[in-house]
Nucleic acid binder design. Structure first.
Lengths: 208, 208
DNA sequence: ACCTGAACACCGTTCAAGT
DNA sequence: ACCTGAACACCGTTCAAGT
């Protein structure tokens, strides 16, 4: 069953993918649906409501892993799904840090992470905090990667030092070699996930 | 020396604090400076450049810790400074995940984190990755807290389950007790920092 | 060198009017 | 019930003109 709201959000996502968030306009959405901008208002309360819906639409895209898999594999699968949708829809990612996502789909993902942490043996009292932390890492990594926040790390040390006198960036100087080697983002993401899994395991054992 | 650009960015930040990002308008900035919107263009190339500058202006606000302090204390101080500015300027935080910050002030903060990680004994090869991870946690926590992303975790389980049939949120049901206790955000932030410090120490010892 | 004022091509949103 | 079209109060940005 394809509701009119769904159609609108699909078009909004497509416009965001093609031309960034600025291209998501009531008028542009209407035009693509063959309708005026005001015809959208019965299904979308305001532009803000539209963007809320867009975040929900994004979460809808991330597929959940098989419940039978071990918790580690499930967690890694969710993380990779998040990074995948971030790469498909980079313009929408920053909105995740702008408004809370409380759609059914958001809760579905949240519940899957809770379940994985419980299966890992994390004490129930700690689960909500740990979920917030690992979600922040995964969402933050995915958003930073596509937004260019991490690109500061891939600038050549030479360019960076040009901005400030050498003496003011001593650690950059000490790290020149490390900063010169190009970053393997796929590898870094997996390494981060390894560390998160190890962290979760440690929490579980501490709790026993 | 107070340049005209600085004045403009100060006004932009004030407007964002008062009325959100939507209130940051070329015309509004001009008005507050007693000038037309077009008078800003010699100092600000475009609205986008203005927002870049606003991110830089935000980073400018975070004070660096004394270099003589132990690395742990320095890292915690930076993290608390970030959270503090997030609370002072919540509207601007999401911009950090929208564009890279390569101003001198951003590099100053980055260098301080690099220095702390080096002093902790993290192998130089690992420092850039670890910096990206802990910065993501701290920035992500601060942004999520002020943006309301974390508010999903503080909704009553009852309200959440109303959105989906109980059987579809099994982990929520199992966590009902934990989800019902209100969250101490100050405490959670400190606990996260404890975990980060422990993680860094482990990396340092693994490297020896 | 620095600023103005009119103008252009847009926005989101309202409201009365149509079918 | 659903959509239109004109209108309102805004945007960012251009450009010629002023001093």
């Amino acid at each position: 069953m394809l509701t009119r709201r769904q159609e609108i959000l699909d078009v909004a996502l497509a416009l965001a993918d093609e031309g960034g968030l600025d291209a998501v306009t009531m008028r542009a959405i209407g035009k693509r649906l063959g309708v005026t901008a005001m015809a959208l208002y019965p299904y979308v309360a305001s532009k803000d409501d539209l963007l809320d819906g867009l975040v929900g639409r994004l979460l809808q895209e991330i597929a959940l892993p098989e419940a039978a898999w071990p918790w580690e594999k499930r967690l890694r699968a969710i993380a990779h799904a998040v990074r995948g949708t971030a790469r498909m829809h980079p313009a929408v990612m920053p909105l995740l840090f702008t408004r809370p996502a409380i759609t059914p789909d958001a809760l579905r993902v949240l519940d899957a992470i809770y379940a994985a942490l419980l299966d890992a043996g994390v004490p129930p009292k700690e689960v909500p905090r740990v979920e917030r932390m690992i979600s922040t890492v995964v969402l933050g990594f995915a958003a930073s990667e596509v937004s260019g926040r991490f690109s500061i790390g891939s600038l050549m040390p030479r360019e960076r030092r040009a901005q400030l006198p050498d003496a003011e960036l001593p650690a950059h100087a000490a790290l020149a070699a490390a900063l010169d080697t190009p970053v393997d983002w796929d590898g870094e993401f997996d390494t981060d996930l390894d560390d998160l899994v190890a962290f979760i395991s440690a929490l579980a054992h501490r709790g026993c």
